[in-house]
Design a protein around this nucleic acid. Structure first.
Length: 263
DNA sequence: ATGGCTGGTAGAACCAGA
């Protein structure tokens, strides 16, 4: 049995936060780190720190200004594919095959704008269609797969600080939750986060920058997720988040998650 | 209490995030 740890973090600019990414890697030393919202084109990706810390296998899928994902790894990676589930050229996915043959999918789902109405707000419709296309892909998936990333939906009542107050807020609307449930059912995905922190436990991964004191108000949401194929999920031996990272210097508004497998 | 913030990029009374 070999142990492998995989971290995922929406970093909100990898260049602006290279210092806390290094702090995280020195402290937690995951084998693989999946980043979302890198906000950097591939030729400007800050490779040096990762190289120094032994993350010598790196794949990036960036674009100017927004979005962007990357996988930094101590173990070899083979690129599998880059899905464009919006079909608009945005850099939101990177899939790789690990040395043991397992697939790792790093996803950054669109936020969906402010208004939860696809007519008034086309971005919301795009988000729903993104889930539909992911579901089409997932339904045909036959291999053991780990899916991590910023799914931009907090599905359970206990995934938000106030269920009733957020029912009309993009990320927690019933139509979004239904789309996420369809996606989960299409492959039998196991929600590793809730396997290790069962509902109704408090478990958040994001807090707005706009709160005067994120910890005191604690108006969090669980937007970031780790999923595994049903049989693979039985090999998950650990899952944790690093909540103190939300208070590190110049933090991301998301915190990192780490999942460990024995296989 | 949907924004009181933040980053990228342009050089803005900008955009996007969620």
């Amino acid at each position: 049995m070999a142990r492998l740890s995989i971290a995922s973090w929406n970093i909100n600019s990898v260049r602006a936060r290279i210092g806390i990414v290094e702090r995280f890697l020195r402290q937690e030393a995951p084998d693989i780190l999946c980043l979302q919202e890198t906000k950097v084109v591939d030729r400007d990706f800050p490779h040096a720190m990762f190289e120094e810390l032994g993350y010598v296998h790196r794949m990036t899928n960036g674009q100017p200004m927004h979005h962007g994902v990357a996988i930094l790894s101590k173990v070899p990676l083979r690129e599998d594919r880059r899905h464009d589930w919006q079909d608009n050229g945005e850099a939101r996915h990177l899939g790789v095959r690990l040395p043991n043959g397992i697939l790792l999918e790093n996803v950054y789902v669109p936020a969906g704008g402010d208004i939860p109405d696809p007519i008034a707000n086309p971005k919301f419709g795009q988000k729903l269609r993104y889930y539909d296309r992911m579901t089409d892909w997932s339904a045909g998936l036959r291999e053991p797969t780990v899916l991590v990333g910023d799914m931009n939906i907090a599905p359970l009542e206990c995934d938000v600080w106030n269920h009733k107050a957020l029912l009309d807020v993009v990320s927690h609307t019933p139509v979004e939750v239904a789309k996420m449930n369809d996606l989960m059912a299409s492959h039998g995905w196991v929600d590793i986060g809730r396997t290790f922190f069962p509902a109704p436990q408090r478990h958040y991964t994001w807090w707005s920058y706009r709160a005067a004191d994120w910890k005191a108000s604690d108006r969090g949401r669980r937007l970031d997720h780790v999923w595994a194929s049903p049989k693979l999920a039985q090999h998950a031996v650990g899952y944790r988040v690093v909540e103190p990272a939300r208070s590190w210097e110049k933090p991301s508004d998301h915190i990192p998650m780490i999942v460990e497998f024995d296989w």
